[in-house]
């Protein structure tokens, strides 16, 4: 009987110890500067893109009309022209790559997948509709499918073209991503791929929030008819 009671009380003591230990763990030292293995880093030291833009400042500007980051994107991408409503949160997610901040903040991977498949359909559609062939014999309902698979049709909305477009719009400096190797150049670290993925994910985001019709209009008028994207 006695031992039973003792046993119970012991368990009780153990539990209280545990909870105390739990509460103690909330004090954390955040380290900034050089990396030290095992020590947590200060978020301000790594939440910054290769061009020196900090994530925190952009996050504070969300929803503000005076925001430099968002107004620049909205000026360069003609969202208003095609009556497309995308909120700042989503826009920031589109401009954040998976490599940034170890995936702690929302990133564009899934939007990119959606957008890239949509763009592939649109690009192939564009090339079968806009091909001047003399021999009308092989067309199906006026569409020339034989043009697909050629080098010319592969070039439409290719990764390298989209990256060039991003660069010409000066949007590539607004992307949040992290270099794989800090000592190497941006191109070595795959900046073109990341830039094109941002454009793809903008298309994906528009598709998810604004529907197919508006996205098709945006893609055909802004990307397919744009000489920089479609050489």
């Amino acid at each position: 009987m006695l031992s039973n009671q003792l046993g119970r009380s012991l368990i009780g003591i153990n539990k209280s110890c545990l909870s105390q230990r739990n509460s103690l763990r909330f004090i954390t030292y955040l380290h900034s500067g050089d990396r030290v293995r095992g020590i947590k880093r200060d978020p301000t030291s790594y939440m910054i893109n290769p061009y020196g833009l900090t994530y925190e400042t952009v996050q504070k500007e969300k929803g503000l009309a005076t925001s430099e980051f968002f107004s620049k994107i909205r000026n360069q991408l003609p969202l208003k022209k095609y009556n497309i409503a995308v909120d700042d949160n989503l826009l920031l997610q589109c401009f954040t790559h998976k490599s940034f901040a170890h995936g702690k903040v929302p990133y564009n991977e899934k939007l990119f997948i959606m957008g890239s498949h949509f763009l592939k359909v649109q690009a192939s559609l564009y090339s079968i509709q806009n091909d001047n062939v003399k021999d009308k014999d092989f067309l199906i309902n006026g569409l020339n499918f034989n043009t697909l698979g050629s080098n010319k049709s592969k070039q439409i909305l290719s990764e390298c073209n989209l990256a060039q477009l991003m660069e010409s719009l000066a949007l590539n400096k607004l992307i949040f991503w992290k270099k794989r190797n800090v000592n190497e150049s941006n191109d070595f670290n795959g900046e073109p791929k990341i830039a094109s993925s941002v454009l793809n994910s903008v298309v994906g985001a528009i598709l998810l929030t604004n529907g197919v019709e508006k996205t098709t209009l945006f893609v055909t008028n802004f990307l397919l008819k744009n000489k920089k994207a479609n050489i």
Binding site: S124, I128, I140, F145, N146, L148, G149, S150
Partner: peptide, 12 residues
Amino acid sequence: NQQRDNYGLNIF
């Protein structure tokens, strides 16, 4: 590539 086959159709 000027013939009736499913090459382009397949890609699309």
